[in-house]
Design a binder for these strands. Structure first.
Lengths: 248, 248
DNA sequence: TCAAAAGTGTTTCGGATACACCCATGA
DNA sequence: TCATGGGTGTATCCGAAACACTTTTGA
């Protein structure tokens, strides 16, 4: 008992806690995206014994899986009211290769529901959980080895996000409330992994009719000061809901 | 005991069977689409005590959720090797309003993974399961009341299928191997729920370069005999994988 | 004063749309 | 013979892509 206690630094051993509180065999993992200094980031946790993983958790008996994801996000970032979307459920019995837990509830097979979140980098204050020593942003380009199938989960989340750009705007959740057109451009370029023509991009964005051009410019940078924009939340939400680019 | 036996006509009571074979709290439901006589159909089961539901099942301990879905499909339709796609996981604790099972394993809360399948109507020989008295095709337009949240599950499946037409072809799994352009047109119109210009539709389909025009015509109908086509499987699969209509 | 970034155009092109016309078939 | 459905072709339009020119800024 005392052994297992100190092993993970918990008040009670994990399998006891879990068994009573959570649905067995089911977990939720969150791929939390942020945007900072021109690159796309993912929030990762480091276990006390070394390896990296996605922030995740379990589903309480009376809780919806969406609520679980919201709770997990809140715990790691301090944020609620962010963009959160379920994208896939991973249910291979061998997905947790090399699992360290050998006893009890948590040692069993888990099916995990994947969510991705879009959050404003500057508003996040990453907090490790009980099992973890660190909670840090990693550049999407240079993610370390992750446990189990978490690397595939990140890859699929990113791919889903990329595809969603075909019919949904992005930016409201990733950028500060005021931003410049070049910043929005960088965001799109980063997610898509390709360069875009800034002039055509601007025309296309403006044609969506979800942006409001402000009478301010972003000063301080070198070169000509770019205008600031903000999203028209109502129109943004409408575009988000009904989707753009319906081809039929 | 004898009571519960006769209640569902099982050799052993359901909660005993399930407890040992399956993951608790987790199920799989399949929305199986077929196309017949110009309308889109869904395969539904009728319980012996009346209400209708989706064909579904549970996940064996050593089985992936994809495999579970394949197995369920095989059991109800006799088909394997069909198009099957996971589209959403439903995890509201109140999703099973009015649940009849009051005891044991099956009476608990279930999170369900939704799959939709596209199958060739004529190849399917619907088979009810142990709990059911009937397994029948229903027109999507006139689905009866379904248990729990199954109606929402069907609705979301249909919506997902609709959206997928924006960037993926459809037809290989729903039509016989040889088909006419008007038949393909009807399929699209039915899924989308709107009329399309047959001439523009034909040009667009041909431009996808996934069809092979045969030297035969479909005779027997009234009016001018339309040409038969078949899909170029390789090109179809490629289009399926990479998607059409990437807008960036 | 000049390179680099930003604002604001114009031209061009291809795919989607909206049609018109002719052909085949059975009632 | 004619209504209906099917095969094929053309004019048009609109949005995307390509690209030019000017303005502002700090180094």
């Amino acid at each position: 008992m005392a052994k297992r206690k100190s092993e993970f630094g918990l008040k009670r051993p994990f399998h006891e806690l879990g068994e009573s509180m959570f649905l067995p065999h089911l977990s939720v993992d969150c791929v939390i995206f942020g945007f900072h200094e021109g690159s796309l980031k993912v929030l990762l946790l480091q276990w006390k014994d070394g390896p990296w993983c996605l922030p995740g958790g379990f589903v309480k008996h009376e809780e919806s899986i969406d609520r679980s994801a919201i709770r997990i996000l809140k715990e790691r970032t301090g944020l609620d009211a962010i963009f959160l979307k379920q994208f896939h459920t991973f249910g291979d019995p061998d997905r947790e290769k090399g699992k360290r837990f050998k006893k009890g509830w948590i040692s069993k097979r888990f099916v995990t529901v994947g969510y991705y979140a879009l959050v404003e980098y500057s508003k996040v204050f990453p907090q490790p959980d009980q099992l973890s020593s660190a909670c840090v942003w990693w550049d999407v380009q240079s993610i370390p080895d992750l446990i189990y199938d978490h690397k595939q989960i990140v890859a699929l989340a990113l791919n889903t996000l990329r595809l969603s750009l075909n019919d949904h705007p992005v930016g409201y959740n990733l950028l500060p409330s005021k931003f410049t057109m070049p910043e929005l451009l960088r965001l799109y370029e980063t997610i898509l992994g390709q360069e875009l023509d800034r002039r055509n991009f601007q025309k296309r964005m403006l044609s969506l009719d979800i942006l409001i051009k402000l009478n301010e410019r972003k000063t301080g940078g070198a070169h000509k000061a770019p205008f600031l924009y903000r999203f028209d939340k109502k129109k943004y939400d409408r575009a988000m809901k009904q989707g753009l680019n319906q081809s039929w």
